[in-house]
Amino acid sequence: MGFKLLSKLLVYLTASIMAIASPLAFSVDSSGEYPTVSEIPVGEVRLYQIADGVWSHIATQSFDGAVYPSNGLIVRDGDELLLIDTAWGAKNTAALLAEIEKQIGLPVTRAVSTHFHDDRVGGVDVLRAAGVATYASPSTRRLAEVEGNEIPTHSLEGLSSSGDAVRFGPVELFYPGAAHSTDNLIVYVPSASVLYGGCAIYELSRTSAGNVADADLAEWPTSIERIQQHYPEAQFVIPGHGLPGGLDLLKHTTNVVKAHTNRSVVE
Protein backbone atom coordinates (compact mmCIF):
# COMPACT_ATOMS: atom_id res chain seq x y z
CA MET A 1 0.00 0.00 0.00
CA GLY A 2 1.47 3.42 -1.01
CA PHE A 3 2.09 6.05 1.66
CA LYS A 4 -0.34 8.52 0.10
CA LEU A 5 -3.11 5.92 0.07
CA LEU A 6 -2.29 4.92 3.64
CA SER A 7 -2.41 8.55 4.80
CA LYS A 8 -5.80 9.06 3.21
CA LEU A 9 -7.06 5.82 4.75
CA LEU A 10 -5.94 7.02 8.20
CA VAL A 11 -7.87 10.27 7.72
CA TYR A 12 -10.97 8.32 6.70
CA LEU A 13 -10.70 5.94 9.65
CA THR A 14 -10.19 8.81 12.08
CA ALA A 15 -13.27 10.57 10.77
CA SER A 16 -15.29 7.34 10.91
CA ILE A 17 -14.31 6.68 14.52
CA MET A 18 -15.27 10.23 15.48
CA ALA A 19 -18.62 9.92 13.78
CA ILE A 20 -19.39 6.74 15.73
CA ALA A 21 -18.12 8.12 19.02
CA SER A 22 -20.09 11.37 18.72
CA PRO A 23 -23.01 10.90 16.34
CA LEU A 24 -24.79 14.09 17.34
CA ALA A 25 -21.79 16.38 16.97
CA PHE A 26 -20.24 14.93 13.85
CA SER A 27 -21.54 14.83 10.33
CA VAL A 28 -18.35 14.05 8.43
CA ASP A 29 -18.44 14.89 4.75
CA SER A 30 -18.82 11.68 2.76
CA SER A 31 -18.13 13.35 -0.58
CA GLY A 32 -14.51 12.22 -0.75
CA GLU A 33 -11.02 12.20 0.69
CA TYR A 34 -9.17 15.15 2.16
CA PRO A 35 -7.83 17.27 -0.73
CA THR A 36 -4.09 17.02 -1.37
CA VAL A 37 -1.63 19.45 -2.92
CA SER A 38 -1.68 17.70 -6.30
CA GLU A 39 -5.44 18.17 -6.57
CA ILE A 40 -5.59 21.93 -5.98
CA PRO A 41 -4.16 24.34 -8.58
CA VAL A 42 -2.59 27.49 -7.16
CA GLY A 43 -5.31 30.14 -7.03
CA GLU A 44 -8.08 27.69 -6.22
CA VAL A 45 -9.46 26.63 -2.84
CA ARG A 46 -11.20 23.50 -1.60
CA LEU A 47 -13.52 23.15 1.39
CA TYR A 48 -13.75 19.94 3.41
CA GLN A 49 -16.54 19.45 5.93
CA ILE A 50 -15.21 17.91 9.13
CA ALA A 51 -18.32 18.18 11.28
CA ASP A 52 -21.68 19.90 11.39
CA GLY A 53 -20.82 23.57 10.98
CA VAL A 54 -17.05 22.98 10.79
CA TRP A 55 -14.95 22.99 7.63
CA SER A 56 -11.30 23.20 6.75
CA HIS A 57 -10.21 25.29 3.79
CA ILE A 58 -7.28 24.11 1.73
CA ALA A 59 -5.25 26.19 -0.72
CA THR A 60 -1.86 25.84 -2.40
CA GLN A 61 0.94 28.30 -3.01
CA SER A 62 4.22 28.32 -4.94
CA PHE A 63 7.28 28.94 -2.80
CA ASP A 64 10.95 28.49 -3.72
CA GLY A 65 10.08 26.48 -6.81
CA ALA A 66 7.71 24.05 -5.09
CA VAL A 67 3.98 23.98 -4.40
CA TYR A 68 2.73 23.57 -0.84
CA PRO A 69 -0.73 23.06 0.66
CA SER A 70 -2.07 25.24 3.46
CA ASN A 71 -5.00 24.64 5.79
CA GLY A 72 -7.38 26.96 7.59
CA LEU A 73 -10.68 26.59 9.42
CA ILE A 74 -14.27 27.78 9.01
CA VAL A 75 -16.74 27.54 11.91
CA ARG A 76 -20.42 28.39 11.83
CA ASP A 77 -21.50 30.97 14.40
CA GLY A 78 -25.28 31.18 14.20
CA ASP A 79 -26.13 32.65 10.81
CA GLU A 80 -22.55 33.81 10.28
CA LEU A 81 -19.14 32.25 9.78
CA LEU A 82 -15.87 32.64 11.66
CA LEU A 83 -12.77 32.21 9.50
CA ILE A 84 -9.48 31.02 10.92
CA ASP A 85 -6.50 32.10 8.80
CA THR A 86 -6.38 33.40 5.26
CA ALA A 87 -5.76 31.18 2.25
CA TRP A 88 -2.15 32.40 1.80
CA GLY A 89 -2.37 35.43 -0.45
CA ALA A 90 -4.88 37.85 -1.94
CA LYS A 91 -5.85 35.71 -4.94
CA ASN A 92 -6.37 32.59 -2.84
CA THR A 93 -8.31 34.46 -0.17
CA ALA A 94 -10.64 36.00 -2.75
CA ALA A 95 -11.18 32.50 -4.14
CA LEU A 96 -11.86 31.28 -0.59
CA LEU A 97 -14.62 33.84 -0.05
CA ALA A 98 -16.17 32.91 -3.39
CA GLU A 99 -16.05 29.20 -2.54
CA ILE A 100 -17.63 29.81 0.86
CA GLU A 101 -20.45 31.78 -0.76
CA LYS A 102 -20.97 29.00 -3.31
CA GLN A 103 -20.87 26.02 -0.95
CA ILE A 104 -22.05 27.36 2.41
CA GLY A 105 -23.95 30.53 1.57
CA LEU A 106 -23.38 32.29 4.89
CA PRO A 107 -21.39 35.50 5.39
CA VAL A 108 -17.90 35.52 6.88
CA THR A 109 -18.07 38.29 9.48
CA ARG A 110 -14.91 37.71 11.54
CA ALA A 111 -11.49 36.24 10.87
CA VAL A 112 -8.61 35.31 13.17
CA SER A 113 -4.99 34.97 12.04
CA THR A 114 -3.05 32.49 14.17
CA HIS A 115 0.41 33.97 13.57
CA PHE A 116 2.19 36.64 11.56
CA HIS A 117 3.51 34.68 8.57
CA ASP A 118 2.08 35.30 5.12
CA ASP A 119 0.28 31.95 4.98
CA ARG A 120 -1.90 33.22 7.87
CA VAL A 121 -2.23 36.96 7.18
CA GLY A 122 -1.70 37.15 3.41
CA GLY A 123 -5.15 38.14 2.17
CA VAL A 124 -6.24 40.11 5.25
CA ASP A 125 -6.69 43.19 3.05
CA VAL A 126 -9.09 41.20 0.84
CA LEU A 127 -11.08 40.19 3.91
CA ARG A 128 -11.17 43.76 5.19
CA ALA A 129 -12.40 45.03 1.81
CA ALA A 130 -15.17 42.43 1.94
CA GLY A 131 -16.36 43.78 5.30
CA VAL A 132 -14.81 41.05 7.43
CA ALA A 133 -13.52 42.13 10.86
CA THR A 134 -9.97 40.80 11.14
CA TYR A 135 -8.36 39.83 14.45
CA ALA A 136 -4.99 38.70 15.78
CA SER A 137 -3.07 38.88 19.02
CA PRO A 138 -1.12 42.10 19.72
CA SER A 139 2.07 40.09 19.22
CA THR A 140 0.94 38.87 15.80
CA ARG A 141 -0.07 42.37 14.73
CA ARG A 142 3.28 43.78 15.84
CA LEU A 143 5.33 41.03 14.18
CA ALA A 144 3.32 41.30 10.96
CA GLU A 145 4.09 45.02 10.83
CA VAL A 146 7.80 44.40 11.39
CA GLU A 147 7.79 41.74 8.66
CA GLY A 148 5.96 44.01 6.23
CA ASN A 149 2.99 41.63 6.07
CA GLU A 150 -0.70 42.53 6.12
CA ILE A 151 -1.93 43.48 9.59
CA PRO A 152 -5.28 42.36 11.06
CA THR A 153 -7.28 45.32 12.36
CA HIS A 154 -8.35 44.22 15.83
CA SER A 155 -6.33 42.92 18.79
CA LEU A 156 -7.21 39.76 20.71
CA GLU A 157 -6.59 40.37 24.39
CA GLY A 158 -5.86 37.81 27.10
CA LEU A 159 -3.42 35.68 25.10
CA SER A 160 -0.05 37.05 26.17
CA SER A 161 1.14 34.29 28.55
CA SER A 162 1.74 30.60 27.87
CA GLY A 163 -1.40 28.64 28.71
CA ASP A 164 -3.80 31.57 28.22
CA ALA A 165 -7.16 30.72 26.64
CA VAL A 166 -10.10 32.92 25.63
CA ARG A 167 -13.49 32.15 24.15
CA PHE A 168 -14.12 33.74 20.77
CA GLY A 169 -17.60 32.96 19.50
CA PRO A 170 -17.87 29.22 18.74
CA VAL A 171 -14.17 28.50 19.38
CA GLU A 172 -11.56 28.73 22.08
CA LEU A 173 -8.27 30.42 21.26
CA PHE A 174 -5.23 29.08 23.11
CA TYR A 175 -1.69 30.37 23.36
CA PRO A 176 0.53 27.37 24.16
CA GLY A 177 3.78 29.31 24.17
CA ALA A 178 6.41 29.74 21.49
CA ALA A 179 6.74 26.99 18.89
CA HIS A 180 6.79 27.50 15.09
CA SER A 181 6.72 31.19 15.97
CA THR A 182 6.59 33.10 19.22
CA ASP A 183 2.99 34.19 18.61
CA ASN A 184 1.33 31.01 17.27
CA LEU A 185 -2.22 30.36 18.48
CA ILE A 186 -4.20 27.11 18.63
CA VAL A 187 -7.93 27.00 17.89
CA TYR A 188 -10.33 24.49 19.43
CA VAL A 189 -13.95 23.84 18.45
CA PRO A 190 -15.49 22.32 21.61
CA SER A 191 -18.79 21.38 19.96
CA ALA A 192 -16.96 19.06 17.56
CA SER A 193 -13.69 18.16 19.37
CA VAL A 194 -11.73 19.67 16.47
CA LEU A 195 -8.26 21.05 17.20
CA TYR A 196 -6.66 23.37 14.66
CA GLY A 197 -2.95 23.41 15.38
CA GLY A 198 -1.84 25.73 12.62
CA CYS A 199 1.86 25.69 11.82
CA ALA A 200 2.76 24.60 15.35
CA ILE A 201 1.63 21.08 14.37
CA TYR A 202 2.99 18.92 11.53
CA GLU A 203 1.24 16.33 9.40
CA LEU A 204 2.37 12.72 9.90
CA SER A 205 4.20 12.51 6.57
CA ARG A 206 6.48 15.40 7.44
CA THR A 207 9.95 14.36 8.53
CA SER A 208 11.82 17.68 8.45
CA ALA A 209 11.27 20.82 10.48
CA GLY A 210 11.02 23.09 7.45
CA ASN A 211 10.92 26.84 8.06
CA VAL A 212 12.14 27.39 11.61
CA ALA A 213 13.59 30.87 11.11
CA ASP A 214 11.17 32.34 13.65
CA ALA A 215 10.77 29.22 15.80
CA ASP A 216 11.70 28.60 19.41
CA LEU A 217 13.02 25.05 19.07
CA ALA A 218 13.80 24.70 22.77
CA GLU A 219 10.30 25.73 23.88
CA TRP A 220 8.32 24.02 21.11
CA PRO A 221 8.03 20.56 22.77
CA THR A 222 6.85 22.17 26.03
CA SER A 223 4.24 24.18 24.14
CA ILE A 224 2.95 20.99 22.53
CA GLU A 225 2.69 19.41 25.98
CA ARG A 226 0.47 22.31 27.01
CA ILE A 227 -1.78 21.67 24.02
CA GLN A 228 -2.04 17.98 24.91
CA GLN A 229 -2.84 18.77 28.53
CA HIS A 230 -5.42 21.43 27.66
CA TYR A 231 -7.25 19.43 24.97
CA PRO A 232 -6.91 15.71 25.77
CA GLU A 233 -10.40 15.14 24.37
CA ALA A 234 -9.55 16.45 20.89
CA GLN A 235 -10.42 13.90 18.21
CA PHE A 236 -9.62 15.58 14.88
CA VAL A 237 -6.37 17.55 14.59
CA ILE A 238 -5.63 19.84 11.64
CA PRO A 239 -2.00 20.85 10.97
CA GLY A 240 -1.10 24.08 9.24
CA HIS A 241 -0.06 22.18 6.13
CA GLY A 242 -1.05 18.73 4.90
CA LEU A 243 -3.33 15.95 6.03
CA PRO A 244 -5.21 15.99 9.36
CA GLY A 245 -5.26 13.17 11.88
CA GLY A 246 -5.56 12.62 15.63
CA LEU A 247 -3.59 13.62 18.69
CA ASP A 248 -0.71 11.51 17.40
CA LEU A 249 0.22 14.53 15.28
CA LEU A 250 1.33 16.28 18.47
CA LYS A 251 3.79 13.57 19.44
CA HIS A 252 5.01 13.33 15.85
CA THR A 253 5.68 17.07 15.75
CA THR A 254 7.66 16.88 18.98
CA ASN A 255 9.76 14.04 17.56
CA VAL A 256 10.52 15.98 14.36
CA VAL A 257 11.44 19.13 16.27
CA LYS A 258 13.69 17.25 18.71
CA ALA A 259 15.40 15.39 15.86
CA HIS A 260 16.08 18.68 14.11
CA THR A 261 17.45 20.21 17.30
CA ASN A 262 19.71 17.22 17.93
CA ARG A 263 21.08 17.34 14.38
CA SER A 264 21.76 21.06 14.74
CA VAL A 265 23.71 20.46 17.96
CA VAL A 266 25.81 17.72 16.33
CA GLU A 267 26.53 19.86 13.28
Rank of each mutant, 00 (worst) to 15 (best):
W88G: 02
R128S: 12
K258I: 14
I58P: 01
V212L: 10
A59Q: 15
G2N: 14
Y34V: 08
F116P: 00
H260E: 07
R167F: 07
T109D: 08
S160I: 12
W220E: 08
L5F: 13
L249H: 02
I186Y: 07
E267F: 06
A200E: 11
I104V: 13
F168L: 07
E203V: 09
Y48Q: 14
P23S: 07
H230N: 09
A21L: 08
L47I: 07
L159R: 08
D85V: 00
T182Q: 12
K251L: 06
H241P: 08
S27C: 11
G122H: 01
L159A: 06
V146G: 10
A165K: 13
P41L: 09
A144C: 04
A87M: 02
P41I: 13
G163Q: 13
Q235W: 13
V37W: 12
F236Y: 00
P152R: 14
N255T: 10
P221G: 12
E39D: 14
Q229D: 15
F63Y: 15
N71R: 06
D52M: 11
V187N: 03
G89T: 12
P244W: 13
S208E: 14
E267T: 15
G122D: 00
G131Y: 15
Q228D: 12
A87H: 00
R110K: 05
R46P: 12
V166M: 07
D214E: 09
S7D: 13
Y196I: 11
A25R: 04
D52F: 01
L96R: 00
V112K: 00
R46S: 10
V54C: 06
V108S: 04
G122I: 15
D29V: 08
D79A: 10
K258N: 08
L10G: 07
L185W: 04
T60D: 06
H115W: 00
Y231P: 02
L97K: 01
P221W: 11
A192R: 08
V212K: 07
E225W: 08
F3L: 09
T182K: 12
D29L: 06
I201S: 13
V126N: 06
A144W: 15
F3W: 10
Y68V: 05
V54P: 03
P23Q: 12
V45N: 09
Y34K: 10
K251I: 03
S56L: 07
L82C: 14
T60A: 04
G158V: 10
V166I: 14
I186Q: 00
S7G: 10
Y135I: 01
P244M: 14
S22K: 02
D85P: 00
Q235Y: 11
V257E: 10
L249P: 05
F26L: 05
S223Q: 15
K91G: 12
A165C: 10
L5S: 06
L96T: 13
S193P: 12
T14M: 14
L127K: 04
E219A: 06
R128Q: 13
A200S: 13
A25V: 09
D52Y: 01
K251Q: 08
I40R: 09
L97W: 01
V28E: 08
V11W: 09
H180E: 01
W220I: 14
G158E: 11
Y12T: 13
V45Q: 06
A165H: 15
G197R: 01
I40E: 07
T140Y: 06
P176V: 10
G123V: 02
P69A: 05
S181Y: 01
T153H: 15
A21H: 12
N262Q: 07
H57Q: 10
V112D: 00
G169E: 08
A178Q: 15
S38Y: 11
Y135H: 01
S30Q: 08
A94E: 13
V212G: 10
L13G: 09
G242V: 04
S30M: 11
N184G: 12
L204A: 13
L185E: 04
G89H: 10
V37H: 14
S264M: 14
N184L: 03
Q103L: 07
I224M: 07
D183G: 09
L247M: 15
G242C: 08
Y196K: 03
L10Q: 04
R76V: 07
F63S: 06
P152L: 09
Y231C: 14
S139E: 03
R46K: 02
W220T: 14
K102Y: 14
I50E: 10
R76L: 03
S38T: 05
S191P: 11
T134E: 12
A213C: 13
I50N: 03
H115P: 00
Y231H: 03
A136P: 01
E99W: 12
D29Q: 07
A21I: 05
L204P: 15
V257S: 06
W88L: 00
A129R: 05
R141G: 13
D216M: 04
W55P: 01
N255C: 02
Q235T: 02
D248R: 08
L217A: 09
P232Q: 13
L143A: 04
N184F: 00
R128N: 01
G198T: 15
G242D: 09
C199I: 11
V266D: 09
D29N: 09
G43P: 08
L6T: 03
E44H: 02
S191N: 10
G72Q: 07
K8F: 15
N255Y: 04
G65H: 00
G210S: 08
V45D: 04
A213I: 06
P138Y: 15
F236T: 14
G148K: 02
V112M: 05
S62R: 04
G163V: 08
G240P: 00
S16R: 11
E225R: 09
V146H: 06
I186P: 01
K8E: 07
E101V: 09
M1Y: 15
V112H: 00
L243S: 09
L9C: 04
D85F: 00
K4W: 05
L195N: 06
W220M: 08
K102A: 08
N262A: 03
H180P: 00
Y12K: 11
I50C: 02
A87S: 10
P244L: 13
P176F: 04
L156V: 01
H117D: 00
E99P: 00
I151E: 01
G240S: 13
N92C: 09
S139I: 02
M1I: 13
D118K: 04
L195P: 01
R206W: 13
L243E: 04
P232D: 05
N211K: 07
F116M: 15
A136M: 15
I238Q: 05
I100G: 05
N149Q: 00
V189S: 07
H252T: 09
D64Y: 09
V171S: 04
L243V: 13
I17M: 06
A87F: 00
V194A: 13
A218V: 08
I74N: 02
S208W: 14
Q103R: 08
L173R: 03
V28C: 11
L83S: 10
H115S: 00
G197Q: 02
V187L: 14
T261K: 01
P244E: 07
R263F: 01
L250A: 05
T109K: 12
G105V: 07
L82R: 10
A136V: 11
G123R: 01
H117T: 00
Q228M: 12
H230E: 04
F3K: 03
F26W: 06
T254E: 14
Q49A: 10
V265W: 08
S161R: 12
V237W: 11
V171L: 02
A133E: 13
A136N: 06
P232L: 10
F236L: 02
E267P: 06
D52N: 11
L47V: 09
G242Y: 10
L173T: 04
P170I: 12
G72M: 07
D216Y: 11
T109N: 04
L143R: 06
R206Q: 08
P23C: 11
N149I: 01
L81N: 03
E219G: 09
G43W: 06
A59S: 11
G43R: 09
E157D: 08
I151S: 15
T254V: 09
S56H: 01
Y202P: 05
L5K: 03
A259D: 15
V37F: 08
E101K: 03
V266W: 04
G242E: 06
A133S: 02
H260W: 13
H180F: 00
P239S: 10
P35D: 03
D248V: 07
G122A: 06
S70P: 02
S27Y: 05
V75N: 14
V112P: 00
V189C: 12
T222Y: 05
A130P: 02
V67W: 05
V166W: 10
F236G: 10
S160F: 06
G65Y: 15
L10D: 12
T182I: 13
A178F: 04
V126H: 00
A178V: 09
D29M: 04
G72H: 09
S137G: 10
V126P: 14
H252R: 05
A25S: 04
I227D: 02
S27E: 04
N211H: 04
E157Q: 14
G242M: 04
E267N: 00
I201N: 05
V45F: 06
S30C: 11
